[in-house]
Amino acid sequence: MQIFVKTLTGKTITSEVEPSDTIENVKAKIQDKEGIPPDQQRLIFAGKQLEDGRTLSDYNIQKESTLHLVLR
């Protein structure tokens, strides 16, 4: 499924993921596309910071959901 990751600069990254993918996994995909190390990434969805060990389905993230990427 496709999800969108919006950066603070307003850029939107499209990523191909599975509901069973972990947040860590998603951060790795963002690193592949943007070159941002996962340890600098914080992903936010519905006002919550997403934890690395959890999966997209844990957070009820569905296709075409938009996550927000904040850098630390």
Rank of each mutant, 00 (worst) to 15 (best):
residue 26 V to D: 00
residue 1 M to I: 11
residue 16 E to T: 13
residue 33 K to F: 08
residue 38 P to C: 10
residue 50 L to E: 01
residue 60 N to R: 07
residue 16 E to F: 13
residue 15 S to C: 15
residue 15 S to P: 09
residue 22 T to M: 07
residue 71 L to Y: 09
residue 56 L to A: 02
residue 27 K to L: 11
residue 46 A to K: 14
residue 62 Q to W: 06
residue 8 L to H: 14
residue 26 V to H: 00
residue 58 D to V: 03
residue 31 Q to P: 03
residue 7 T to G: 06
residue 31 Q to A: 15
residue 1 M to V: 05
residue 18 E to A: 12
residue 50 L to C: 02
residue 24 E to M: 13
residue 1 M to H: 05
residue 67 L to S: 00
residue 7 T to M: 15
residue 14 T to K: 09
residue 45 F to Q: 02
residue 13 I to C: 04
residue 63 K to S: 15
residue 8 L to Q: 14
residue 71 L to V: 13
residue 38 P to K: 15
residue 66 T to M: 09
residue 5 V to T: 03
residue 44 I to K: 05
residue 53 G to L: 08
residue 52 D to A: 06
residue 67 L to F: 03
residue 3 I to C: 02
residue 12 T to G: 03
residue 59 Y to L: 05
residue 11 K to D: 08
residue 5 V to W: 02
residue 19 P to I: 08
residue 25 N to M: 15
residue 34 E to T: 15
residue 44 I to L: 12
residue 25 N to Q: 14
residue 14 T to P: 07
residue 23 I to G: 00
residue 50 L to D: 00
residue 49 Q to I: 15
residue 44 I to A: 05
residue 46 A to V: 06
residue 20 S to Q: 09
residue 10 G to I: 02
residue 71 L to S: 08
residue 59 Y to A: 02
residue 23 I to H: 00
residue 39 D to E: 13
residue 20 S to L: 08
residue 70 V to I: 13
residue 24 E to S: 12
residue 47 G to F: 04
residue 20 S to N: 12
residue 69 L to I: 05
residue 64 E to G: 15
residue 23 I to Y: 00
residue 71 L to R: 08
residue 33 K to N: 07
residue 65 S to K: 04
residue 50 L to Q: 01
residue 15 S to V: 15
residue 3 I to T: 00
residue 6 K to L: 10
residue 58 D to Y: 14
residue 37 P to H: 10
residue 41 Q to E: 02
residue 45 F to G: 02
residue 51 E to K: 09
residue 14 T to G: 05
residue 62 Q to F: 10
residue 67 L to K: 00
residue 55 T to L: 08
residue 65 S to E: 07
residue 28 A to S: 11
residue 10 G to K: 04
residue 9 T to D: 14
residue 21 D to L: 05
residue 14 T to N: 06
residue 21 D to V: 03
residue 62 Q to T: 13
residue 37 P to G: 05
residue 57 S to E: 11
residue 53 G to A: 10
residue 13 I to S: 02
residue 64 E to N: 15
residue 61 I to G: 01
residue 40 Q to R: 12
residue 50 L to Y: 00
residue 66 T to L: 10
residue 56 L to E: 00
residue 8 L to D: 11
residue 35 G to Y: 03
residue 51 E to T: 06
residue 72 R to L: 14
residue 3 I to D: 02
residue 43 L to K: 01
residue 29 K to N: 06
residue 19 P to A: 09
residue 16 E to A: 09
residue 12 T to N: 05
residue 9 T to M: 12
residue 57 S to R: 12
residue 66 T to H: 15
residue 56 L to V: 09
residue 36 I to Y: 13
residue 28 A to Q: 13
residue 37 P to S: 08
residue 61 I to M: 03
residue 59 Y to F: 04
residue 58 D to M: 04
residue 59 Y to K: 00
residue 64 E to L: 10
residue 26 V to P: 01
residue 29 K to M: 14
residue 72 R to I: 15
residue 72 R to D: 11
residue 18 E to T: 14
residue 11 K to P: 05
residue 5 V to L: 08
residue 46 A to H: 13
residue 28 A to F: 12
residue 31 Q to K: 09
residue 54 R to Q: 07
residue 11 K to E: 09
residue 9 T to R: 11
residue 47 G to Q: 04
residue 41 Q to M: 15
residue 48 K to S: 08
residue 29 K to T: 07
residue 5 V to K: 00
residue 48 K to M: 13
residue 65 S to M: 10
residue 53 G to H: 14
residue 30 I to N: 01
residue 56 L to S: 00
residue 53 G to N: 12
